[in-house]
Nucleic acid binder design. Structure first.
Lengths: 126, 126
DNA sequence: CAGAATCCGCTAAGATACTG
DNA sequence: CAGTATCTTAGCGGATTCTG
């Protein structure tokens, strides 16, 4: 069995949501199940390989659930698990802190830009 | 001016606390100002270069403050800024989620281990 | 003591082609 | 449509040496 050792509990959470596209994936899966292709369409720039990889990691972490329909052509849907939904509160608070941090830093001569600024992200995940 | 573009606000927070030793640094700086050497002593395995690097990043992000005393040999102390202290609530909640996640995963055949388990980390940062 | 300057290895991520 | 297999690339972290 692979053993994963962390210094602090917070590092586990950090590891779980670290990955270039994971927050965007979780943001998009907030409302409803979604097919792989639709997800890919909503994440401009992601490659097949990376999408599959990050989805599999989230599935291994029991954050999302993968459902395969026995059809041709293949149909696969992903949705948040109940456990995955418990991440929302944390992601929301991280979003709020991040927005404030961006303001503070920009007031100090930095230049942070947030693309999905109006979309609050994790507020109204059902 | 360097421009930093993020998809979501949460990614800013993620970036700020990502770095192999940053959570441990923030955990150790919770209570009081600390000299570089003392910090290094508390982070077994970290190298000079990486310690300096991560401290500088946290300083650039206005999370910690660097104070130099004009002495020989050099004396440098680091402490949390007021803004840095606002991270505590988030880090604490991330710790709690991480602990629960470890339990859930371990119940499913995984093997997560947390070294600083009793030390709750960010609970009693003054 | 604290930090800068090099050099190096590992791994996440990207590009592309292929398969059922 | 969804996923796999290779190959390539960029950046973080580690080891070591040097300096005021």
């Amino acid at each position: 069995m692979a053993e994963e050792i962390y210094q602090l509990a917070v590092d586990i959470t950090l590891k779980t949501i670290s990955g270039k596209w994971k927050t965007s994936i979780l943001c998009n899966l907030g409302t409803a199940p979604m097919r792989t292709g639709e997800l890919k369409r909503r994440l401009p720039g992601i490659s097949q390989r990376i999408l599959t990889k990050q989805l599999k990691e989230l599935e291994t972490d029991q954050i999302i659930k993968r459902k395969v329909y026995p059809e041709v052509p293949p149909r696969v849907e992903y949705c948040l698990t109940e456990h995955g939904k418990t991440l929302r509160k944390i992601l929301l608070e991280m979003s709020e802190w991040g927005s404030e941090h961006a303001e503070l830093q920009n007031a100090s001569g930095h230049n942070y830009e947030i693309i999905d600024q109006n979309l609050k992200g994790f507020q109204d995940m059902s």
